[in-house]
């Protein structure tokens, strides 16, 4: 599904974020990417989202080189990916309902679909009663659940979760990971980056370990080893 072909990324100040990285992610896989701060995890995710371009090498989604997509194709491609971030990145002036509706509107869904799906997906993340609250009225865990609801509402092929539990307490961390696992069980590919050893060890899924921009481990049922 995703193929990194000898991807390197260096910046004008000669710092290297990724160096000769190659790996493949199959459909329906749950892959965790771990590494210390500055190891290149976020750069790698940004490459998949086409927020960053590789200095060398290519990134493919199915058979398409994602850095050669035209603006229109790029919008369509991004609609096939759901993203969840450590800082939630909700639209502050929109309610929980409107945040999720926005992603559906952007994907060109009808008013009827929006009216039916948004409450449903908010129920799935157990936030039905906070539908009309603004992000500032929600706790960290609730915000992250809204972000997950937004990520899954368009039934994406891939969920990218960049340290989604970084700002959460252990109870919320557990709940968010359970939601991500459930999404994966239903057939969506999930890529997760985290610093949380407990999360990785409990998942028992594939782990790619990065160090100074290079892949140093890629274990099928790995744990957090740095």
């Amino acid at each position: 599904m995703i193929y990194f072909d000898k991807v390197s990324k260096s910046y004008p100040d000669d710092s290297i974020a990724l160096e000769n990285v190659s790996f493949t992610i199959e459909p329906k896989e749950f892959v965790s990417i771990v590494g210390q701060s500055g190891a290149g995890k976020t750069t790698l995710l940004k490459m998949i989202l086409a927020e960053e371009r590789p200095s060398e090498g290519s990134v493919f989604f199915e058979s398409a080189n994602i850095h050669k997509l035209r603006p229109n194709e790029l919008n369509n491609y991004r609609r096939r990916i759901g993203t969840v971030f450590q800082d939630f990145r909700l639209l502050p002036n929109k309610t929980a309902y409107e945040n999720i509706a926005f992603a559906m509107e952007a994907a060109g869904r009808t008013e009827e679909e929006i009216a039916a799906d948004v409450p449903h997906v908010l129920e799935l993340v157990d936030l039905g009663r906070k539908m009309w609250n603004f992000p500032k009225e929600l706790s960290g865990g609730e915000k992250q659940r809204v972000a997950i609801a937004r990520a899954i509402v368009n039934q994406p092929d891939l969920i990218i979760a960049d340290e989604p539990t970084g700002n959460l307490d252990p109870v919320n961390t557990f709940e968010i990971i359970q939601i991500l696992k459930k999404i994966n069980d239903l057939g969506t590919t999930v890529i997760l980056t985290t610093h949380n050893k407990g999360v990785i060890d409990a998942l028992g899924k594939r782990v790619i370990t990065l160090d100074q921009g290079k892949i140093i481990r890629d274990d099928k049922n790995g744990g957090y080893v740095i």
């Binding site: 603006p71 919008n75 491609y77 991004r78 993203t83 909700l90 926005f102 952007a106 994907a107």
Partner: peptide
């Protein structure tokens, strides 16, 4: 600007 980045990431077109 950050909201605009989020809108971009959920696949909203420039026009939208």
């Amino acid at each position: 600007r950050e909201e605009i980045a989020v809108m971009r990431l959920v696949g909203a077109s420039g026009q939208y």
